[in-house]
Design a protein around this nucleic acid. Structure first.
Lengths: 221, 221
DNA sequence: TGACAATGTTCGGGTATCCGAACATTGCTC
DNA sequence: GAGCAATGTTCGGATACCCGAACATTGTCA
């Protein structure tokens, strides 16, 4: 249980500046907020989180370390499933979610080695190292990119398989170069220019803002 | 929980003619017999086992089907760990025990395919097919073999890693040809003749009866 | 600033699993 | 076949989750 909570908190913080709220955690874990409230007490008692009443939930260094290990497990498992067992990038999240609790330290180390110590998972998320170090990314959310600027897709959130499939069929995959040609606020739509790796000619794609929120890009220099 | 119970019952029956007793199940699962007694009620209610008071525990056909699927998972996982992740045959049991609860049907099917639909696991145990069919083996326990007869090692119980290591260092591995040269009852020892696959000259090995009980051989014709 | 919406906590209660101790049954031995 | 050891069951109680409803707090907006 503790592991689910700390990694939910960690993920809530990873791409946001705000502290995790109890409600976020509840939503991520699919439980009632009253359940979260109760369980946070245990986590505080175990020294994994700090929690001010009606306020912010933050990880202690122990909590952070535990979370990072779970994230490492998750991302290595996702990578392995894609690389070695023929899974699609839209199929791996749930499977990894289950396996990450059952796999031993040894298992995780073996698949890490087997994959050649990868740095990114199939969705572009950075894989923490065994010692807990995590690289930082300067990627920004596609929805926040100014019109006229562009970048390379560095990460696509893995949480909605249907969205991943949708993006895949529209040619939005990791490492695609995109630029924001226009933003139609009333329609909630971005107009993207997109270059596939090989061909030179950029294609035009319309993308809903909801989809854009799941995409992070490394801005052009 | 149900899965642990049905597969414990199935395993208890696999190499024995007697019905599983509540105590056996408790020992296999590492819980108190009172716990087993209580949980058997639920399994009966769920239609997975039949249980006569103070008496035999037997699987229903549903229970048997569920058990066979768990055994299949376990043995495929063991095989995969050895074949693809460099585990030793003495290291796989506990890992597989955990993973078998977390892996999806898809995962199991993929590793099955990846391994080319193997028939035996690293300890010689037969792997049930996807549809639930299980081949039968005519192997007999080494401890029951008559002096002067011999056979080929078909199975070594995977439950004690230390014993597996011990046997490995003494050249007792799957498919070794052995013969019983003598049985010293008072010492609880078998004297074995052993032929490694390559060289012709048989070696002599003494083996405790406890070790012999973990070994099954296919008798010579 | 007062009232309401959003959010978080507490409380009572439900389920599943575990255990040990007391009790029941079985079966072996003399 | 009486008695005892081995085995199995029942019972009361602990823990760890989960929930919804009632209550508390915070923050927002007129």
């Amino acid at each position: 249980m503790a592991q689910d909570y700390v990694s939910a908190i960690w993920k809530a913080e990873e791409w946001s500046d705000e502290h995790a709220a109890a409600g976020d955690i509840a939503a991520r874990l699919g439980v009632a907020t009253s359940t979260v409230s109760g369980n946070l007490k245990k986590l505080v008692a175990d020294g994994l989180v700090e929690h001010e009443r009606y306020g912010a939930v933050t990880l202690t260094s122990d909590g952070r370390a535990a979370a990072v290990q779970m994230v490492r497990r998750h991302r290595l498992l996702e990578s392995y499933l894609v690389e070695r067992l023929g899974y699609g990038w839209d199929e791996v999240h749930d499977e990894a979610e289950h396996l990450e609790h059952a796999a031993s330290e040894t298992f995780i180390d073996r698949i890490d080695q087997e994959l050649g110590f990868p740095e990114r998972d199939p969705h572009g998320d950075l894989i923490p190292r065994r010692d807990g170090r995590v690289s930082t990314s300067d990627a920004v959310n596609l929805a926040d990119l100014a019109v006229g600027t562009g970048g390379t897709i560095a990460r696509i959130s893995d949480e909605d398989p249907a969205l991943l499939r949708y993006l895949g069929t529209h040619g939005i995959v990791l490492d695609t170069r995109v630029s924001v040609r226009d933003r139609v606020e009333v329609a909630g739509v971005l107009v993207l220019g997109r270059e596939s790796g090989e061909t030179g000619r950029p294609l035009e794609t319309e993308l809903g803002v909801l989809a854009a929120r799941a995409i992070w890009v490394t801005p052009d220099d």
